[in-house]
Write a protein that binds this DNA or RNA. Structure first.
Lengths: 139, 139
DNA sequence: TATCCCCTTCGAGTTGTTAGAAGGCAAGTC
DNA sequence: GACTTGCCTTCTAACAACTCGAAGGGGATA
């Protein structure tokens, strides 16, 4: 049994967000004690982790809610749940690739600035090197 | 020379966002034609790409704006620009790792549902298997 | 009893994006 | 010339997902 604060520290999600998720029906099994305070058990923490995982990989809350409702409905919704997760898997892999592409550009910038700082020899690492007339200053 | 729409298709950013960036000083070299329409060249497109890259890796617009202003100020700001980019590099690598962790959970769910669908034998792939009394249905 | 501390709800603010309305300008067509 | 089409503009509003602060309550401890 955990308080909202303990859950917050455990899963690295703010208490604000956890309350927001609960208020919007994304944590279907959270209980209350005699003072109306939220009481979480390990299953609730797993729900928070699932919501966090899906949110962090770009699923909107409305769709997460739909998925959770399917989970509560029973085995006959497994085919749709499977489709949702496969789609999320595909999109998450695409995201990972995009991040890698962004990281390559950032790496270039870091290398460029490092060069400027070390040898004080600004080399244009910008992609369109033929536009050098325009690149009068390093970015 | 490109219209806002052409830029939008080229860099896969909505015209709404491009206007928003321009209105907030994140595209410092966009020009206007005689009808007050925005005119973009290749340098402007690179600015859009930089903004997109930094946004997609989690940098808030205010910080991106600060970075762009540093770029416009000249060589003496290279040390700070370097620091900013190194920090962004570190955070982006952390993001990539988080995505991979999320992807592992999603993969588990996909495998689980696939198993249920193929052999109709629901195996609990949930982490806390000892809580099986609580897991009366597969998630 | 007073002071903490954590909890609650409610309403408002923030960020970044998306959308729609209302209108200007230019090119083409009847 | 009038009309339509199409792209552009600005402005305002809506939206998602938080984030925060105010106002208040319950319980433990000094």
């Amino acid at each position: 049994m955990y308080t909202i604060q303990e859950v917050s520290q455990k899963v690295h999600v703010s208490t604000y967000s956890i309350r927001y998720y609960d208020d919007h029906g994304l944590l279907p099994t959270v209980k209350r004690d005699e003072n109306n305070s939220r009481v979480f058990d390990d299953v609730d923490i797993e729900w928070v982790e699932i919501v966090t995982c899906l949110r962090a990989t770009g699923m909107p809350l409305a769709k997460i809610k739909h998925y959770i409702e399917l989970c509560l409905e029973g085995d006959q919704t497994v085919p749709e749940r499977y489709r949702i997760m496969v789609e999320q898997q595909r999109e998450t892999m695409a995201q990972a690739e995009k991040i890698q592409a962004h990281l390559r550009l950032i790496n270039k910038k870091v290398d460029h600035y490092a060069n400027v700082l070390i040898n004080n020899k600004p080399d244009t690492l910008m992609p369109n090197k033929h536009l050098e007339k325009i690149y009068t200053q390093d970015y």
